[in-house]
Simulated assay, not measured.
Amino acid sequence: MHERVDLLKQRGEAVIDFSIAISHFPAPAPVRAAVRAALDEPLLPYTAVGGLPALRDGLARKLRAENGIDAQAQHVIVTNGAKQALYQTLYVMTDPGDAVIVMRPHWPAYVATAQLLGLRVELVDQPDVIDAAFLDGLPRAKVLVVNNPHNPTGRVYTPAELDAIRAWLRARGTACIVDESYEKLVFDGAHHSLAACPDWQALGIATIFSASQSYAMMGWRAGFACAPAAWIRAMEALQGPITAAVPALTQAAAAAAFAIGAVPDLLADYRARRDLVVDLFAPVPWIAVASPASGPYLWGDISALTLDTTAFAERLIEEYRVAIMPGEALGCPGFIRLGYIADDEATLRRGVAAIIALGDRMAAAGAAGREADPCRA
């Protein structure tokens, strides 16, 4: 969908893109300053495949101070964004044919990456509360994938839920990949890391981080993973022939970004936008949009209108030039995902108005069809 937006824009058409989250914020000033300083250096050499030693040390300090994860540099690898970290982590944790549990709705990359590696994906519906009863009912699998904070619902797991997952991992012997890319985009509550426990390495917990959304650095491709040292060595061996080290400029940007901590201005802006869009949808009878506790997305339930959200998304981009992500891509027909952080407020309002206009037309057509149906009871 995002590629279609780019093609339309190349043709000179105006398109509002809610299909992914593209921040209207610039990258933080310390990040841009760090890159300018790096460009003044006479050389930008290859670095160690896993990242500059100083950067890995700094990321390990961040993990200890902010996430409560007892990590050292040997537990960290710097990657080209979260997707590369996910691929390499899943690669070294599994063999083809192994089962991986993914809770839906899900970031599409979890399923696509598992399929690419020849893994068997076990899709389960994410419950309102993750507890022992839910976990005990899960199928046997090599790896459980957890997304906290969650894309697309914005859910933030509670300490009790994380405790339940740890207990289940100990009992089952299942490993876990935790995607914490949105850790700095929490509006309500607080973020806690699953690996913040003394036995995280024995449990086999790998944690993925990204600067893309938390620091408005989508195109910088700056991410990293924290995992047991043996897995990190294997990930380095894999990364070497794939891409070698992350570009030196990206590493300079990552060092500056992850040293910042939170970005209050960005978070306040996103919170205001979240509240605006939720309020705009509130009086619309055919859509339910909960106010998310975190993240750059809104998750809308339009099952009262249609379960074919792929068709809804197609009509929206063809007739109104507004792009959204249909729920089918995230495992849940009847839902739509909106990235609400791009462009200005006026554009945001126009995009929401277009979604409401299409839905109202479909609702009216459906009601007229029911009235005209001679077989209607």
Rank of each mutant, 00 (worst) to 15 (best):
D308C: 04
D275G: 00
A141V: 13
A346D: 14
V92R: 06
L8I: 05
L169F: 06
P333E: 12
P228Y: 05
A37F: 10
R271L: 15
V178N: 15
W299R: 00
L330A: 06
P198N: 11
L144D: 03
I177A: 10
F312N: 08
A353K: 02
V78G: 09
L194T: 03
M217S: 14
A60W: 09
E236P: 09
A353Q: 14
H191V: 06
L249T: 09
A225D: 02
L194W: 06
A253C: 06
V352W: 01
Q126A: 15
F25S: 01
T47N: 03
A237I: 04
K83T: 12
E318R: 04
R11G: 13
E13R: 09
P42D: 08
A114E: 05
E319R: 15
A196I: 05
L117M: 05
S19L: 03
R36P: 00
R315G: 01
F18V: 03
I205C: 07
Q251L: 10
V129E: 08
P53C: 00
I317R: 03
T347Y: 03
L8V: 03
S181G: 13
E3W: 11
G261H: 03
E345Q: 15
R370L: 12
A363T: 04
S23W: 06
P241F: 13
E319P: 07
D6N: 04
L280S: 08
L338M: 15
E66F: 05
